[in-house]
Design a protein around this nucleic acid. Sequence first.
DNA 1: GTGCAATTGTGAAACAGTTCACAAACTGAG
DNA 2: CTCAGTTTGTGAACTGTTTCACAATTGCAC
Lengths: 217, 217
Amino acid sequence: MYKSKRISDSTIHRLSLYYRSLAALEKSGHQTVCSKELGKREKLTPAQVRKDLSFFGSFGTRGLGYPVRELKDKIAEILGINRTWNVAIVGVGNIGSALIGYKEFQKQGFHIRLAFDNDQRKIGSLHKGILISDVKELKPLLRKNGIQMVIVAVPAGSAQAVVDEVVEAGVKAILSFAPTNLKVPEEVFLRTENMAIELEHLSFHLAKPYYRRPARP
Amino acid sequence: MYKSKRISDSTIHRLSLYYRSLAALEKSGHQTVCSKELGKREKLTPAQVRKDLSFFGSFGTRGLGYPVRELKDKIAEILGINRTWNVAIVGVGNIGSALIGYKEFQKQGFHIRLAFDNDQRKIGSLHKGILISDVKELKPLLRKNGIQMVIVAVPAGSAQAVVDEVVEAGVKAILSFAPTNLKVPEEVFLRTENMAIELEHLSFHLAKPYYRRPARP
DNA sequence: GTGCAATTGTGAAACAGTTCACAAACTGAG
DNA sequence: CTCAGTTTGTGAACTGTTTCACAATTGCAC
Ligand SMILES: NC(=O)c1ccc[n+]([C@@H]2O[C@H](COP(=O)([O-])OP(=O)(O)OC[C@H]3O[C@@H](n4cnc5c(N)ncnc54)[C@H](O)[C@@H]3O)[C@@H](O)[C@H]2O)c1
Ligand SMILES: NC(=O)c1ccc[n+]([C@@H]2O[C@H](COP(=O)([O-])OP(=O)(O)OC[C@H]3O[C@@H](n4cnc5c(N)ncnc54)[C@H](O)[C@@H]3O)[C@@H](O)[C@H]2O)c1
């Protein structure tokens, strides 16, 4: 049965993976799927799949598996993606533009409503259909537009100042691409995506000699 | 003492964090740093810092701490970032362009040498100083230029085909931005960066009611 | 030198996450 | 309706990671 417990980050991450597999299964006309099959698709053990789902309830039928459509909807509900979210982007440079140009976010319900910059040459112009506002207007505009998530794509040196404003505007979820440590109050959820660290991870593996890869099943 | 053991992904990730803190400390003129201070900067316990480092040797002085410069260099060696790497990007769209335009990679020793696309309008043109080659030339050019890492930034549907070619060219490290499961042989190291999943993680936290955040120390 | 304060390096303990294994529950065939 | 065959849901066992706690060192003041 459903238990109110701390859900681990890895479980949340895997829910997103299950969701994608289920969407694919639904498209290909499958009515049900068992934990073994779902596990195979995401390179996980069947037990892992069942345990993850069991934190949120019991959605399967013994002897049969899980109803694809229903489980997908249930995971969407758990992840909060059965609805739309109002997102703003601060910093319309390389990364900021790329994100604005990515139409899949929109399709998934993450609507990019506002974009901000502090460069006078950009402010006031349209970027892929989005008007770039002055970052001085950040706080009131976030409030006025009911923005729930902010993506921070400014240089590392400006990130903390931007985050502080975002927090003051009452936003509780921030995704930052700046490779720097940011302080936020307890109740604000912040994730930092650091691509350089991903490359360093690759380089660690190429450089060895410290590491031995585990055998794969 | 140094032990040849499986090093966890989280340890590798933290080494990257330490490296950044050490670089900052060096810049601000610090000669030494203790595990407590380093831990504070990265929101980790001192024990965690010492344990991570202990997998690779003993670099500190009891009673004093770690020599900033030396430890930084040692971590660079462990991560394989005390050298340069030849990187290629496949897919010069939103994300591919953003990465090519990001000068920090270059400064860190990740040199983007080649870029590929399959769009005739892009092939042959210069993009921020990089010539865009035809993806048909992928295999021979990767080989000829001694490319060690490839960043895949093509649509999900094309990603597996691209990865297959990259693998055939003998590349052993791949970073993919395509939100899809990719197959690679045992000896190839693949990481997938999925930004949509990051947003879903934010949304999970906003959506609750399933999760309670743990108190912070 | 001696002694005190600081801090490392590391087994051992505690905690967290994953896998096992099996009773329970269901399907579908006969 | 029964029974063989599946597959779930979940405590328990296991495995991996983090934190604790302390002996071992070292720096530095006097
Ligand atoms: N481009 C990449 O591939 C990449 C990769 C990894 C990390 N990052 C990080 O992402 C962030 C953005 O990188 P980028 O390459 O897009 O940089 P960029 O310089 O191209 O863009 C930054 C944008 O932010 C704007 N800006 C600066 N200060 C601002 C402020 N206080 N308020 C509002 N806007 C402000 C600038 O005018 C510019 O348009 C950086 O922190 C960078 O380290 C980028
Ligand atoms: N843009 C984003 O912010 C973002 C965010 C998350 C994930 N992604 C993922 O990153 C990938 C790229 O996204 P994007 O927004 O840059 O897409 P895009 O369409 O802007 O760019 C893709 C580029 O790849 C090229 N291409 C297509 N097939 C190719 C092939 N077989 N060989 C070589 N080149 C090929 C296209 O010509 C295009 O230039 C996608 O898988 C996308 O899902 C992008």
